[in-house]
């Protein structure tokens, strides 16, 4: 525990007054908290005024799905923090200096992973607290059972952030330049979309009715699936589609996200170990 505290202190000393961290961190916090406050008002959604309270989005338990989904949209700001701090250490040969000063490659990795877990934890906690506040204010049902029925989303969101930030860590160590990291992330995103379209077309051609997308298990789609779209649960939409939404915990995606996280961490470790710095 003492060792871990030393690594966290090192991370704090390195990054606390780094401008990108301050800027992106502030924007992120403002958006995260600000969004919670706006939720109680009606918001324009594709040109239509949507009253979230009226649409039942602030009702327990679907409130968790909605809030954690919306919070997930701005996770890129946390990604930018990881990207800026890590790439800077590689382009400025600071990682090399860390090694020479006697920080082991393993310790460096642990310090980064710990930072990622802490950031994800803080974000999850803020959204959770916002949810509790909004829920107890607007939800018609606040029995213990209803409030905690879909508490899975706390876990799902946390894993989603950790998974996402670990991917950025891996790309940052691999490519060392912000532009390249962003480009590779974009390429991965596009490739997943193309694969999705291809798979969808194949299914349509085959004419099978009940299909499951295997592409849902690709890294980015899997993250998405951890906290899926909440929009089917909006009253108006469910009336139009006549669907009767039943929530099921996506365990396969949970386990896969843990698997991906391990792969990202191990991949980063191998890069640190095998390359010459």
């Amino acid at each position: 525990m003492n060792k871990l505290f030393r690594l966290i202190t090192i991370e704090w000393l390195k990054n606390a007054s780094y401008k990108p961290v301050i800027v992106f961190g502030t924007i992120y916090l403002l958006l995260l908290v600000g969004f919670g406050l706006i939720c109680s008002q009606s918001i324009p959604f594709f040109g239509v005024e949507v009253d979230l309270v009226e649409q039942g989005l602030l009702e327990f338990p679907q409130l968790w799905n909605f809030l954690f989904y919306m919070a997930g949209i701005i996770k890129i700001f946390l990604g930018l923090i990881i990207m800026f701090t890590v790439t800077n250490e590689f382009t400025e040969k600071l990682f090399k200096q860390n090694l020479i000063d006697g920080l082991s490659k393993k310790e460096y990795l642990i310090s980064k992973v710990t930072t990622i877990i802490l950031l994800s934890f803080i974000s999850t906690l803020i959204v959770y607290l916002t949810g509790m506040w909004l829920g107890y204010k607007y939800s018609t049902q606040t029995s213990f059972e209803t409030v905690y029925k879909e508490i899975y989303f706390v876990l799902g969101y946390f894993l989603k952030l950790v998974n996402f930030l670990l991917l950025f860590l891996l790309l940052s160590v691999l490519l060392k330049r912000i532009v390249l990291v962003l480009m590779s992330f974009f390429v991965l995103w596009v490739v997943e979309i193309i694969l999705r379209i291809v798979e969808f077309k194949l299914f349509v051609e085959r004419g099978s009715e009940n299909f499951q997308l295997y592409n849902d298990y690709l890294p980015l789609a899997n993250m998405h699936k951890l906290v899926d779209y909440p929009f089917e649960r909006i009253k108006t939409i469910s009336q139009i589609t006549q669907s009767n939404y039943v929530f099921e915990t996506p365990w396969s995606h949970v386990f896969l996200s843990i698997g991906y996280s391990i792969v990202f961490i191990y991949g980063t470790y191998l890069l640190l170990l095998k390359k010459d710095w």
């Binding site: 000393l13 090399k96 200096q97 000063d101 920080l103």
Partner: peptide
Amino acid sequence: IGAIIEQPNFYSYLSAEQNLKITAKIK
């Protein structure tokens, strides 16, 4: 061991003291 390789490598946005704090923690 104390070592300096090629050019000095420090966090440019930190002060001399803050940089040495990082080194001190590492060492």
